[in-house]
């Protein structure tokens, strides 16, 4: 993991550039040299410590707002701990984790999460890249088009919940009404597992595709035009240019999109929660669309079984790290193909 990330951290290697970081020497003895001015020493201090100052705010805020919740969940996950109950919390070691692995509802939630993830994140990232390519052409009224695809992102969640429940209502929903009008059987959006996943993935894709497209677009705009022109002169077609120039040059951004979408997709919570008319954590009458985070929320927050909820949180964390890591490696491979000239 470490060596891979060091590699993302060192930028892409399309055209070797003189490494700026080596400019002011960070090694070497300048101790008693009288010719070094205070200015130089200041500059050395700058180079040495400024990077830490620059990243310090993140770590400070994390220490304040992120660290304690993390330790708290780690601690409570070792207890049979019902929040605020009259009974005391009881230390059970890894008991919650052991229980989790034989918990059918957890596996069900994990399966749902993957299913919704595959139905949403995968097509979404692909469509986002293609959409970005379309938006990066010489459109008339480019501003309007680009901002238009981002509109879903500014919609209010309350409005979304209301509207999507109206769209996907089983008995009176707009989609089923239209289906029946053309003689097709209505879809059981809530009751049927797969249909409910499709409905939720639709919500997810609706909200996030444009957003991811613009992230990719922002990076596409940073690709120097000369590179494309050169390829054009060489007679490279649209597809070829896309796959051998655009995609590799977008590598850091694609990695970003894939990693964050993987994390976001596996932590999917808002949409299935909004989709549940009972607005609880159950994810349908029999958990047909309960995701892992929803299950965690139901156990840890709604049922106040904090110990068990925390154990779910930690297991999910590990699963996400593994899958995001795998996706990172795959993406690096795919997006890196154009690199070897």
């Amino acid at each position: 993991m470490t060596s891979d990330t060091t590699r993302i951290a060192s930028g892409r290697g399309l055209e070797p550039r003189p490494p700026v970081r080596d400019l002011p020497p960070t090694t070497g003895d300048d101790g008693g040299d009288p010719s070094r001015s205070w200015r130089y020493r200041l500059s050395r201090l700058d180079v040495k410590f400024s990077p830490y100052l620059f990243i310090a705010p993140f770590f400070l805020i994390f220490a304040l707002a992120g660290l304690f919740p993390l330790l708290y969940t780690a601690y409570t996950s070792l207890y049979e701990w019902t929040l605020g109950a009259n009974d005391d919390a009881e230390f059970i070691g890894l008991g919650n984790y052991v229980e989790l692995f034989s918990d059918a509802q957890f596996w069900n939630a994990l399966l749902n999460t993957f299913s919704i993830f595959l139905l949403s994140t995968v097509p979404q990232v692909i469509v986002a890249v293609l959409l970005a390519a379309l938006l990066n052409t010489a459109l008339r009224g480019r501003v309007a088009w680009r901002m238009g695809v981002l509109l879903p992102y500014v919609a209010s969640l309350v409005a979304l919940a209301i509207i999507f429940s109206n769209l996907f209502g089983e008995q009176y929903g707009l989609i089923n009404t239209l289906l029946q009008a053309i003689g097709v059987d209505p879809v059981q959006w809530q009751a049927d597992r797969f249909s409910s996943h499709v409905a939720i993935a639709t919500m997810v894709n609706w909200r996030w595709t444009g957003y991811n497209a613009l992230i990719v677009l922002a990076a596409m705009q940073a690709i120097p035009r000369e590179v494309h022109e050169a390829a054009l002169v060489d007679g490279a077609g649209v597809m070829r240019r896309f796959f051998s120039i655009t995609l590799p040059m977008l590598r850091p951004t694609i990695i970003f999109v894939v990693v964050t979408s993987t994390i976001g997709g596996l932590q999917i919570f808002t949409e299935p929660k909004l989709f549940d008319p009972n607005s609880g954590g159950g994810g349908g009458s029999d958990g047909q669309y309960q995701t892992v985070v929803l299950y965690m929320y139901q156990q840890g927050f709604l049922n106040q079984d904090v110990g068990y909820g925390s154990a779910i949180a930690w297991v999910l964390f590990l699963i996400i790290i593994v899958i995001a890591g795998i996706n990172f490696l795959i993406t690096r491979r795919i997006a890196g193909t154009g690199e070897a000239k």
Partner: peptide, 22 residues
């Protein structure tokens, strides 16, 4: 047990808060 754990929680919260906003 509950009392112990809630004190532990408090100490930790304080440490975290103090560390961050010395």
């Amino acid at each position: 047990m509950r009392h112990r754990s809630s004190r532990w929680v408090k100490v930790l919260a304080c440490t975290a808060a103090l560390a961050a906003t010395a």
